[in-house]
Nucleic acid binder design. Sequence first.
DNA 1: GCTATTATATCATCATGTGATATTATCACA
DNA 2: TGTGATAATATCACATGATGATATAATAGC
Lengths: 137, 137
Amino acid sequence: MSISKNEYERLARFRRALRQFLRFSELAAHQEGLTPQQHQMLLAIKGMPGRDWATVGELAEALQLHHNALVQLVDRAVTIGLVVRLADPEDRRVVRVQLAANGEAVLHRLTAQHQDELRRLREDLTGLLTSLPDVSA
Amino acid sequence: MSISKNEYERLARFRRALRQFLRFSELAAHQEGLTPQQHQMLLAIKGMPGRDWATVGELAEALQLHHNALVQLVDRAVTIGLVVRLADPEDRRVVRVQLAANGEAVLHRLTAQHQDELRRLREDLTGLLTSLPDVSA
DNA sequence: GCTATTATATCATCATGTGATATTATCACA
DNA sequence: TGTGATAATATCACATGATGATATAATAGC
């Protein structure tokens, strides 16, 4: 089955909109002095249902990174005071990563900006998603 | 104005879903022997309305990269036979980047996979987007 | 207690985005 | 035309960050 030029154009518009959102997000993070991944890590921690910490492994899953990449990410975030490492009382292999006060403050500011931007993009993105052709096979 | 824990959780779910889609995309590209950016460049070219080529500047805009990063991207893509550089007959400053036969074939395969994946994710993503709280200010 | 498995950490390496700078072409306007 | 300003692409040195291989430590199964 072939794919029409029109369909390529639609997908390209979708990816461009996505890329623009991500770029906005990267720049917003940089303006707060963080890398984009540091921001995503803060959000993933704060976003853990019913908890205020996450393990290294959970964060790796959330950010779709390998554990070793995440260890380095945590290292840097600890250095600049965004998060702290805590021992898990129940399983001593586990490290709990928790927001530091400054991490909490930065995340709050970034989140507010992102909500605004997402409201602005919402229609574009959902439009491009729902206009995908239904099953081709 | 503060942001509820619930709202952080919702945003975290959205970013995770996004990240999972992007990760799927990265892996699909790698399995075809491309970097994710090479794939995005092919799609951006094919997605130019009414044309089958794009300038370096247009691609930089579409991928939200600086021109110099894009030049390097084109270099590598030319080397492995995904695209070709053509002179623009109307403006000799401009370089037209066009798909090579192999680039076309790879893009077709990747696009089919992505359509399937997007159909699968569509509900999740639109759900998380439309449930954003309305204006807070 | 012995082995397998899970969680985190370390390190060398490589790819890629950035900033500064260069080169060439076009345009506005004298 | 010709001169300066701007635009499009290119080059290069550098730094960040992901990956793969390997290590260390703790837990679980039996």
